[in-house]
Amino acid sequence: MPRVRLLELAHARSGDKGNTANVGLIPYDEEHYQILLQEVTADRVKKHFRCLVKGPVERFELDNLHALNFLLHEALDGGGTVSLMTDAQGKVFSTALLRMEIEVPEEVAARVRGQGRVPRPEARSDR
């Protein structure tokens, strides 16, 4: 099966609670929620972030919104005013998650390819 970046399937927002970052992951198309449920497990997200997230990753499912919420524990170098990180408040962990690649059926890949990026003329000619 072809691989696509989450960026092409979903949008995301992240924030912080102390030393924990959260990422909400929302598919552009509600039909793709099932794919995210199956492919974007807490385990795989932990592997994706590796040393960027020192603690465990938890996943919560919001079937009502067709969305997932991830808690990335010990991701912010102490968080808040303690952290030395540029992204001390975890604001762009969302985009880091969207780098992750997952396998999707051919027809889904064909539909979503190029989504999530500013439209560029060369991207259109690829299709």
Binding site: H11, R13, G15, N22, Y28, F60, L65, N69
Partner: peptide, 15 residues
């Protein structure tokens, strides 16, 4: 989309 993103902002256990 804009409302869903905000609903998930700084979310812990949503239940």
């Amino acid at each position: 989309r804009t409302v869903k993103e905000q609903l998930l902002y700084e979310m812990g256990d949503p239940s």
